[in-house]
């Protein structure tokens, strides 16, 4: 089936199968920042935005992206880079495999939560797993990014 969607501000028409998931469609069109690390909607690595809200692209059929606005990290070079610079200054992108999905969640959180507390930050990002860093460095980076102590 053909779907029409906006991907990183560009309108595209893509041929997709009925049982195809958005993460795979995105990767097959070269949006290789989108990673997958589970088959059970548990890890958060495939996080992208749909109409500005973060979502798990591994769990949404590509058909559902029809007429939607999809944003990947490739579409937010400036915002993402600002945070990525802080993250990597902390050394908290260890293998980096979880980083793009994590960054998409952090940027969404920034848009959604005003002056979040540490608990709120942790709660918001619980769905983004990371096996390398133990999360502390990511939290330090977020606090610097949001300008909270």
């Amino acid at each position: 089936m053909q779907i029409e969607l906006t991907i990183n501000d560009k309108v595209v028409k893509w041929e997709v199968a009925n049982d195809e998931f958005l993460a795979d469609t995105l990767r097959s069109h070269g949006f290789l920042s989108v990673k997958k690390a589970c088959d059970t909607s548990c890890c958060g690595l495939c996080t992208v935005w749909m109409d500005g809200k973060s979502m798990l692209s591994c769990s949404v059929l590509s058909l559902r992206a029809h007429s939607k606005k999809i944003t990947t990290i490739e579409g937010l070079p400036k915002e993402a880079e600002e945070f990525a610079q802080i993250l990597s200054a902390e050394g908290a992108e260890q293998c980096g495999f979880c980083s793009p999905g994590f960054i998409m969640s952090v940027l969404a959180m920034k848009n959604e939560l005003v002056n979040p507390t540490e608990e709120e930050i942790i709660h918001y990002l619980t769905g983004n797993l990371c096996r390398c860093t133990g999360y502390m460095g990511q939290l330090r980076a977020i606090k610097i990014y949001l300008g909270v102590a």
Binding site: L32, S33, V34, A80, A84, L87, S88, G91, S99
Partner: peptide, 17 residues
């Protein structure tokens, strides 16, 4: 504490895996 030479590429999801 020098940042990793590949840090920005991996964090930004560049195709390097």
């Amino acid at each position: 504490s020098i940042r990793k030479i590949d840090g920005m590429a991996i964090a930004m999801g560049k195709p390097v895996y």
